[in-house]
Simulated assay, not measured.
Amino acid sequence: MKITTAITNVKRDIQLQEWSEQIKAQQESGMTVTAFCAQNGISPKTYYYHLRKIRECCLESKPAIVPVAVPRPNSDIRIEKNGLQISLPADISADTLLELVHELC
């Protein structure tokens, strides 16, 4: 029984790959699905069936978790008014910044 399951899975994967290529070709062709299907002898119903199967397969696969490093801001906050320049650290609290802006204005 395991050989039959393996063969079935391989056939399904090959079919998904072939239809993925067809769908990519349609998208790159610039034609509508109806026109592409007519030109290639494919029923639009069959096209959409396989498109749905490909989407379902993509949803079933587990997403990869990729760590992302978020850069810390290294530039200071600069405020200029009437020739006066003030540089503040980027991690200044919002309350302190708000108080300073109110004092300047």
Results as ranks from 00 to 15, higher is better:
Thr34Ala: 08
Gly30Lys: 08
Ile77Glu: 00
Ala69Ser: 11
Asn82Cys: 09
Gln85Asn: 12
Ile42Arg: 01
Cys37Asp: 06
Gln27Cys: 02
Thr8Arg: 15
Ala94Thr: 15
Lys2His: 11
Ile54Tyr: 04
Asp95Glu: 09
Glu18Thr: 03
Ile7Thr: 15
Ala25Trp: 00
Ser87Thr: 10
Gly83Leu: 08
Thr5Asn: 13
Val10Gln: 13
Cys105Asn: 13
Ile92His: 02
Arg52Phe: 07
Gln17Ser: 08
Asn40Gln: 10
Val101Ser: 03
Leu104Cys: 05
Glu80Thr: 14
Gln26Phe: 00
Thr32Trp: 07
Glu21Asp: 12
Gln17Phe: 12
Gln17Asp: 13
Asp76Leu: 09
Thr32His: 03
Leu88Phe: 13
Thr8His: 05
Cys37Met: 09
Leu16Thr: 03
Glu21Cys: 02
Leu51Tyr: 00
Ile92Glu: 05
His50Ser: 01
Leu100Ile: 10
Leu84Thr: 15
Asn82Met: 08
Gly30Glu: 04
Asp95Phe: 00
Asp95Tyr: 09
Arg72Trp: 04
Ala64Ser: 11
Ser43Glu: 14
Ala35Val: 13
Arg78Trp: 04
Cys105Ile: 11
Thr46Ser: 07
Ser29Asn: 09
Ala69Leu: 14
Glu80Tyr: 12
Glu28Tyr: 07
Lys11Gln: 12
Glu99Leu: 14
Cys58Trp: 08
Lys53Ile: 01
Ala90Gly: 03
Ser43Cys: 09
Ser93Ile: 02
Leu98Asp: 14
Trp19Glu: 02
Lys62Leu: 08
Lys2Ala: 05
Glu103Phe: 09
Glu99Lys: 15
Asp91Asn: 14
Gln27Gly: 06
Arg55Ile: 06
Cys57His: 12
Trp19Asp: 01
Ile3Tyr: 09
Lys45Trp: 01
Ile77Trp: 06
Gln15Arg: 15
Gln22Leu: 08
Val101Glu: 05
Ser87Met: 13
Asn9Glu: 12
Met31Val: 01
Leu51Gly: 00
Thr4Phe: 04
Lys24Ile: 10
Arg12Leu: 13
Lys81Val: 05
Phe36Ser: 02
Tyr49Phe: 07
Ile86Gln: 08
Pro67Ile: 01
Thr96Ile: 06
Gly83Ile: 12
Gln15Ser: 13
Tyr49His: 15
Ser61Tyr: 08
Cys105Trp: 02
Leu98Asn: 12
Val101His: 02
Leu104Tyr: 08
